[in-house]
Amino acid sequence: MNEILFYSLAALTLGCGLLVVANPFSRNPVTSAMFLVMTILSLAGLFVLLGAFFLAAVQVIVYAGAVIVLFLFVIMLMGSHELPRRAFHWLLAAAACLVTGALAALLLRLLSALKTQPPAVGAPVEGGTALLGRLLFTDYLLPFEVVSVVLLVAMVGVIVLSRKEAA
């Protein structure tokens, strides 16, 4: 059961991910954003398979709910005109294929040599929300606060950057 779910979700994620980066049918950024939503939703399914329920919920709410909406908002703001279809950069695509393929081959070769021990027995943490919240406010208090400052700085920076200059 788990195996079927894993393979179908993984295939869905990889297929939609491919359609995000290289869609042969459409060059419209809105289509890419929609396939990114699909990718993120199926990744959330994989998180559920791994027992990280809270993380799956955060993934759906923050990514699919907020970040993608932001993407779509900006795309709409700029007019979702398709890029003019110019000569396809064969050299660029070939170079990118070469680099990416070499990296993939290297990673897969490394992974095939990997010998993992059976899981160390311990009390599983398994993404329980209450425990995660306690961890965030005890062991990971400093990173948590730093992330809040990062978000605040990002918010102020976005307002400054996107303001009209003429004011």
Partner: peptide, 15 residues
């Protein structure tokens, strides 16, 4: 999930 189920870092850092 597979190697360090008792350790908390892997659950927190994706957030």
């Amino acid at each position: 999930h597979f190697l360090f189920p008792g350790d908390s870092g892997g659950a927190v850092f994706p957030i």
